[in-house]
Design a protein around this nucleic acid. Structure first.
Lengths: 237, 237
DNA sequence: CGGCTCATGTAAAAGCCGTTCACATGAGCT
DNA sequence: AGCTCATGTGAACGGCTTTTACATGAGCCG
């Protein structure tokens, strides 16, 4: 049966058997409850049912645990973005918007990961593998921007994909961190963060010359079916 | 002479005489050096030359000190933005861009204030006077957006000023917090955060129908549609 | 000037945390 | 069976936050 190495505080021998995993899980819980600053190493150990010194067999120090979480976060983030982008199907623009929504959804649904990744205060370049994971996640956005840039309307200068990607990233992060989660979400808004970001991205894309109204027949290279006549901020009255 | 109540560790009697101010100053130093997490109450006390218990005569706890700093930060921030906006002189669009630059400059030059304001992890609504200060600062951006919205080209639906303001804020905060300061600034970029934000805002404004080229002779009076010549990202090759 | 009072500072202590080190345990291999 | 080494424990150190009882002296009042 499974009485042996259950997670949590089930009776166990001298050795935990799965401590590293249990610690990561506990840390996620704690960070999502009390923020990356409020999380303590000792608490995580307690929650895993081991002594305060035990975690040091698995992580050099508290920062390394947080870095591990950030690392995992970037991996899940990358996977989520990849899935949202879906290689640009069914059309580049709408896939692009889906990526924006996925960004926000991640920040909202995995606040612990998101804080560890972007708000834990640990230097980006402290851990090379961490930076690599971060760059792989960003690469998705960049690849999407690349495809989008290639669709630039003829006659207009083609925007640098890297710049577009950075712009999209900063918008997404800005919305997520100001309005997206927990404490910050308490700022009163006339619209949801999702709608706010979507409008922002659409206006931006239009500024680059992309036709994002998606009225029938006005779309440049896309075959997206008919949408609204309304602009990116809903129906003007 | 001025041997009496000099700042720092100069000889002093039993009473410091200006401890509250000294603590705020010390905290600013420490936060800018080690981030809002690395800052300790005891360190600030030491730096001011008093015992670790002394600060409690002036601040309920560590969080209240940080909140005080955030408060001051918002006040300076508001003043800086007001000055940058300069009531929309000499013209709305360029004043608007100046506000964006001022935002970034504040984040870069006052990282301690900026972290206390946006990254300290304390709930926005913990302190009503703090939230009020924050709202006064945002009101500048909002007022600028209002003026800008009023200039919307005829024939296009007028964008909601509040939404514009939130968009600008999220772009500015996104760029500042991802690329603007200290650790985050180590991400390698093809351009400066300032240029990145300026381009982002210009493209966004163009997406709203504002003509932002501002080369001599191509301004609003011109009949040429925006975006034909040099874009906001410089000369395409 | 003398004395009172109260804001402001100190010392000491409790409780927490991170971290280290010597030591215990027992899982897995030979 | 016995060895070994990864993994966990207990105790200890120093530092931080916060509280409490006590000390100091600046400002005021007569």
């Amino acid at each position: 049966m499974s009485w042996r190495k259950d997670q949590g505080r089930a009776e166990r021998g001298y050795h935990h058997g799965n401590l590293k995993e249990a610690l990561l899980q506990a840390a996620l819980d704690l960070i999502s409850k009390k923020g990356p600053a409020g999380f303590t190493f000792a608490d995580a150990a307690r929650m895993a049912g081991v002594s305060p010194a035990a975690p040091y067999r698995h992580f050099r120090d508290r920062d390394e645990l947080i870095a591990s979480i950030a690392q995992r976060g970037f991996e899940q983030f990358e996977s989520l973005l990849t899935q949202a982008w879906d290689d640009g199907r069914p059309d580049t623009v709408s896939a692009f918007e889906r990526v924006g929504k996925a960004y926000l959804a991640f920040a909202r649904e995995e606040p612990a990961f998101y804080s560890a990744m972007f708000e834990s205060g640990l230097p980006v370049d402290s851990n090379p593998t961490l930076m690599a994971a971060s760059e792989r996640a960003f690469a998705i956005i960049r690849a999407a921007a690349e495809r989008l840039a290639a669709l630039a309307p003829p006659g207009t200068p083609r925007p640098p994909a890297m710049m577009m990607a950075l712009h999209i990233w900063s918008m997404s992060h800005g919305v997520a961190s100001l309005f997206g989660r927990g404490d910050a979400a308490r700022r009163k808004l006339p619209m949801s963060p999702e709608d706010l970001l979507e409008a922002e991205v659409l206006i931006y894309l239009r500024g680059l010359g992309f036709l994002t109204d998606r009225r029938p027949g006005t779309d440049a290279a896309d075959d997206k079916p008919a949408g609204e006549k309304a602009g990116p901020w809903g129906k003007p009255k």
